[in-house]
């Protein structure tokens, strides 16, 4: 098992803030919009760098999304910032008609996604956003795993034509990816090569998968770990190549098991190479208040659950 260490922990939303600030310096067409959550989205550095290219929208997300769509006409690249819940469910029709169907170059940047939003509870913990966004034709869906990857993705999507949903979160997490990485939309990252089981993870679950891989190694199981940061378009080749070798797979995501990354992988496997699969995901329930770590454990998203799923799926191999 390849060794991953970290010296620092940060939230992925701070990676977004750092990437956005970088774009403030390098890309004059980038416009940032926010619905009264500047601090939560870490947009202060961008605003300091280029105050004229920041648009405060107030608590009115529907208007923000459609304003963003209009801003693209004339060449601007709007980045909207609010919580994932208010970036998707609340404004689905605006995104559907004015952004996706109209093929507008809007970057929907969503923080506080998933259960790890924590103490605010289920009203704010959206677990359906990946599904909502990936069902829209033409929408690219990205869920990043640490500070460095989020920063790199934020910078990369400015040069990627078309609507993008960029999903990140609130809790501090280990920083374990390369600070100088080049983020390639749609290209899986091979975290660890192995032969016994494929573990595909996205977002905060990537670190849990690495911890699980280390525990599996101690049990004599050689896990291949793949980070799918781009859920749509899915890197089908990387997944099929891996299962051709391991013959079983576990998908890991901080999302409802209905409609997320796991379902995309299941669809791929059904049509190409049917191998046993297990899901690490929220089991079609709403979340609740608690610390991110306690919630990950309670809802079955931590390393221990991934280890159990891996053992189970290996047992299902013919």
């Amino acid at each position: 098992m390849k060794k991953y260490t970290f010296t620092e922990k940060k939230d992925t939303r701070s990676g977004f803030g750092a990437g956005l600030a970088e774009l403030g310096k390098t890309n004059p067409n980038v416009i940032a919009l926010c619905a009264d959550l500047i601090g939560s989205l870490k947009m202060e550095a961008f605003i300091k760098e280029c105050p004229d290219r920041f648009i405060q929208c107030g608590i009115a997300e529907a208007n923000m999304m459609s304003v963003a769509a209009g801003l693209t006409i004339g060449g601007k690249i709007p980045f909207t910032g609010t919580f994932a819940n208010f970036s998707t469910g609340r404004v689905y029709d605006q995104i559907r008609q004015s952004i996706a169907y109209s093929e507008k170059n809007v970057k929907i940047c969503a923080s506080h996604a998933g259960i790890t939003l924590g103490e605010d509870g289920a009203t704010h913990q959206i677990l359906e956003d990946i599904g909502l966004m990936k069902m829209l034709p033409g929408m690219t869906v990205i869920n990043t795993c640490d500070y460095n990857q989020t920063k790199a993705a934020t910078i990369a999507i400015a040069d990627y034509q078309g609507p993008v949903y960029l999903r990140f979160g609130r809790p501090v997490m280990p920083i374990f990816t390369d600070p100088d990485q080049k983020f390639e939309v749609g290209k899986a990252w091979m975290v660890n090569e192995g032969k016994d089981v494929t573990i595909v993870a996205t977002g905060h679950l990537v670190w849990e998968a690495i911890k699980a891989g280390e525990q599996l190694e101690a049990m004599g199981i050689d896990a291949e770990i793949i980070n799918i940061h781009t859920i749509k378009p899915l890197d089908s080749e990387a997944i099929l190549k891996s299962v051709a070798k391991t013959r079983c797979i576990v998908s890991c995501e901080e999302h409802n098991r209905l409609g997320g990354l796991g379902d995309s992988i299941a669809q791929l496997l059904i049509q190409n190479d049917l191998v046993p699969m297990e899901y690490i995901a929220i089991n079609d329930v709403f979340g609740e208040s608690g610390t991110p770590a306690d919630l990950m454990k309670k809802f079955g998203l931590d390393d221990l659950h991934i280890v159990e799923a891996a053992k189970k799926v290996i047992g299902r191999k013919g």
């Binding site: 459609s66 801003l71 006409i73 605006q94």
Partner: peptide, 26 residues
């Protein structure tokens, strides 16, 4: 320049396009 039919979105869209005109000194 924009799909419409689901009502109530066009004013926001027009505002966005008007803001870009200002950014572009148009």
């Amino acid at each position: 320049r924009m799909a419409s039919g689901s009502l109530g979105q066009g004013l926001s869209v027009a505002i966005g396009a008007a803001l870009t005109k200002k950014y572009n000194n148009d």
